[in-house]
Design a protein around this nucleic acid. Structure first.
Lengths: 280, 280
DNA sequence: GAAGTCGGTTCCACAGTATGAAACACCCGC
DNA sequence: GCGGGTGTTTCATACTGTGGAACCGACTTC
């Protein structure tokens, strides 16, 4: 436009690419295909500009049009998805949340995902204490005595176990009715807790994370019962709150106008050290 | 009408976006993180231009730098992968291939992927005949009497069954030795066939599709034995050939069919401390 | 420890490329 | 034929992107 420096909006010297990227961003975050007009309106770009940019993005496989003409993520995104496991990607997005929970609780934090009949831990933030849970990445644990597993059971992400429920400690829930009562409570409370059920002296608390189609995984903390048992409720609330933030990232179309990390940092109003500045 | 003869490579009026997209394309297709210099050389862009574009792409979450400074697909790709099942994405990429096989054979074509202990069909191209296999999407079939399943067994994508091999017809292979002999033959020939083994009168032929780390799924045709039994070899060759084309799409890096120069600089083998997060 | 090399960023004058208003084309429903 | 909505193409304008060169920091080498 007329003003040459134009600080704030355009950084560096890359207007076209920035605008094109904004279009891609909108399309990828959207739950359903976006029309030309929606994109044009949303970005505020001139129709002609939008048209040219979208044509370029389509030509380069970053975007694609579905049968009804709406824009969706293109073959390049499909290729990426085909080449990489989705869970590590979720873990990547979840890392900031896990980190925050780790900082606020001091305990080990996990992201638990369903695999087959069990729950596996991907992504982990270490406890600040010396006594803490070991590295559980990739370790299979019986879901019925794990907080993460119970959450996944409760929200139907993991099929309920077929056989007998293994007894790990004398506090392990082995009765099917007791389990289903617990699961109902978890659905009601919004989080799950296990105290000495997997291993004596080991406790855990977990809350569900929702994707676009409901619960997909869970985050939770685990540590010594001595440190956790009096904070179950407090940590439970923290977890549900942070899990919600992650859910918003994973499921909601996101009115974010900015980046993923910006969204993540936005959850707590106190961390606005730099709100929105252009050149460093 | 364009009076000026299209300047060779760039079309429309979108040089910057095209170049940026080429960078993203290279990064997404690459098996490992690409360095700034590799990208600059590969695209033939001036270093300054490359720097500016990469900075813009990073700012917009399309790209990201890993711990060692290499460029990898950014949070936007992670988000997409987290939101969508990978197999439908593979199916999307495979559709043209399936379609071609369907046109050339007239039979029903499937993409078979492993899930748990079984094989499921995602993506299907209908037969042109009236008598044809039903819609098998989402249907579980015993892999040992399915051509797709045998391929997945043969190439270690699916764990060999634990218990007894179910007898579906009198031609079903139920002996473990006979099965492993067949699997060896499949590895030798490059394709699998089942004739009346799942259901009397039903035959199928299938070939493996490779991803970045070996076989990941399979494509195959199925139809009445009457129409297929004399074409097993011919269709087998067709399938291996088309499966190869799909494999190239899913595994091989580069080859963007546009401006990128054909010469590919091999990366010098160095000691990387990167964590491999691909397929487990 | 000074000189050389590598990998990448910033500067800057220049022109080529992106831009947007407007005209055009294409549906619809009527 | 007529209006409203949606997208595409045209074209003069000037702003944005470009690349050569200078610059910078880190790491080697002598």
């Amino acid at each position: 436009m007329s003003s040459s420096p134009a600080p704030g909006s355009t950084q560096g010297g890359t207007q076209a690419v920035d605008r094109a990227a904004a279009l891609v961003d909108l399309v990828v975050r959207a739950a359903e295909p976006l029309s030309f007009t929606e994109l044009s309106d949303e970005t505020g770009l001139a129709r002609s500009t939008t048209s040219r940019l979208l044509a370029a993005l389509e030509r380069t496989d970053l975007l694609e049009r579905d049968a009804s003409g709406g824009y969706v993520a293109g073959p390049l995104f499909a290729l990426h998805a085909a080449l990489h496991d989705p869970w590590p990607q979720v873990a990547r997005l979840a890392r900031p949340v896990l980190q925050r929970v780790g900082e606020l609780t001091g305990e080990t934090v996990h992201l638990g995902v369903p695999r087959g009949q069990g729950v596996v831990h991907v992504g982990q933030v270490e406890s600040t204490f010396l006594l803490s849970a070991r590295d559980w990445n990739q370790v299979d644990v019986p879901p019925h005595c794990s907080a993460l597993g119970k959450v996944l059971y409760a929200f139907g992400v993991l099929p309920l176990p077929a056989g007998r429920l293994e007894r790990r400690t004398d506090r392990t829930v082995t009765s099917r009715e007791a389990l289903s009562t617990q699961l109902a409570a978890i659905r009601r409370e919004g989080y799950a807790a296990t105290v000495d059920e997997l291993e004596t002296g080991l406790s855990a608390i977990a809350a569900p994370v929702e994707g676009r189609d409901g619960v997909i995984c869970a985050i939770g903390v685990s540590g010594p019962t001595a440190r956790l048992q009096d904070r179950v409720d407090q940590i439970g609330r923290l977890l549900t709150q942070q899990a919600d933030a992650l859910s918003a990232l994973l499921g909601r179309p996101g009115r974010t106008s900015r980046s993923v990390s910006a969204t993540l940092h936005e959850t707590h109003p106190r961390t606005h050290s730099r709100t929105k500045e252009g050149v460093a």
